[in-house]
Nucleic acid binder design. Structure first.
Ligand SMILES: [Zn+2]
Ligand SMILES: [Zn+2]
Ligand SMILES: [Zn+2]
Ligand SMILES: [Zn+2]
Lengths: 156, 156
DNA sequence: CGTAAAATTGCAACATTATAACCTAAGGAC
DNA sequence: GTCCTTAGGTTATAATGTTGCAATTTTACG
C-alpha cells in the first residue's frame, strides 16, 4: 500500500505550501508561480522526482520552461529548506519538517519508492559519536538508506 | 597536510592491488589490464575521482579508451567490492577494507578533499536503532558527511 | 507617480555523467 | 582446433546539470 493511501495527502500539500509561503514572508523572499508550482509538483508526486520529470510536467501545463527554470526553482526551494535532493536518485523530495536547517537522511523503500525522512535526532547522535570517537567535525551530512518500508513488508 | 603525506601511500596501493587480485582468484574473475589500471588510478589519486578524470588518465597512457571502458571497469570493481561510489560527488574511491560486503559511509573533508570511510560498526549501530525505533528494514545504506578533517582543522 | 536598481525568467548553447547497441577480439573448456 | 563465454572497441545517444546573456518583472526610492 503506497503511503498516499494512508493519509490525507492534500493536507500534506496544503501544509507544505503554507509553510513555504510563510518562510518566504519571514525572509523577504518571493514565492513566484514557477517556484510554487514546482513545490506543489514535488509534493503531489510524493516521492522523489527528477528535475526533468518536473520539467515535463511544467511544460504540459503551459509553463514555458527549459532546464534552468526548473533547476533555479529547485535551488531556491532547497535554499529555503522546503525540499531536499537525494543524490543517489538524482531526485528531489519535499521536506517533512521545514523551517530550520537540518541534515538530511532518507529511508527509501525499494518497493513503493517512498522516501521517509529520518529523525534529525538520530543523525545528530551519529555526528556526536563520530566526533567523539574519530574527531570528525561534521558540517553537513546526507544519509540514504534503502530497504522495505513497514507497509511493503506487511503486504509482501 | 594531505593524507598522502601521512602514510606510505605506495603501501596502500600495493595492498589494495594484492587484495583485489586474490578476490578475483577466489571468485574466478579476471583482473584484466584496464581493470587493474583503473583500480591503481583510483588509489593513486587517493581521493574521490570522477569517471571522466580516470578516462583522461587512461587515454594519456595510451589505453584506447572511451566512456564505456571506464564505466565497465568501475562496475566490475564496485561489484568486486574494492571501490565505492560517492554519489554526492559523482566520484569513485578505493575501499579501505574490501573483501566483505558492507554499507558505505564517508567523511569528506571540504578542505583537502580526502574521503575517509566510516567504521562499519557505527553504521550498523545506526541501522539497529532505526529498525528498533521505526521499523525500517535496511538493506543497504550510504552516508556522506562533509566537514573538516583533523589535519585540516589543525592547520587552519 | 517616474525612474533606477535588483531579482526573476526566457532562451540558447553547452558541459558533465552515464548507458545502449553492436561488433570484434581474446581466453578458457572440451 | 572448435565452441562458448567474457571482455573490450566503437559509435552514438541518453540523462542530468550549468553558463551567459538578454528581456522582463518587481521593488525601492525620490
Ligand atoms: Zn527535511
Ligand atoms: Zn514501501
Ligand atoms: Zn569499503
Ligand atoms: Zn582535510
Amino acid at each position: 500500500m503506497p503511503a498516499s493511501q494512508q493519509h490525507d495527502h492534500n493536507h500534506c500539500i496544503t501544509t507544505a505550501m503554507d509553510t513555504a509561503r510563510s518562510l518566504c514572508e519571514e525572509r523577504g523572499l518571493r514565492m513566484t508561480p514557477v517556484r510554487r508550482r514546482v513545490l506543489e509538483l514535488v509534493w503531489q508526486n510524493h516521492k522523489p522526482t527528477g528535475a526533468y520529470d518536473l520539467l515535463a510536467q511544467l511544460t504540459e501545463e503551459g509553463f514555458n520552461s527549459a532546464p534552468p527554470t526548473v533547476y533555479r526553482a529547485l535551488d531556491f526551494l532547497l535554499e529555503l529548506g522546503v525540499v531536499h535532493r537525494i543524490s543517489s536518485l538524482n531526485a528531489f523530495v519535499g521536506c517533512d519538517h521545514p523551517g530550520h536547517e537540518h541534515d538530511t537522511g532518507f529511508f527509501i523503500c525499494k518497493e513503493c519508492g517512498n522516501a521517509t525522512e529520518l529523525p534529525a535526532s538520530e543523525i545528530k547522535k551519529l555526528h556526536e559519536t563520530l566526533l567523539k570517537k574519530f574527531g570528525f567535525s561534521i558540517e553537513s551530512s546526507n544519509h540514504e538508506l534503502t530497504g522495505l518500508c513497514q507497509n511493503c513488508k506487511a503486504t509482501s
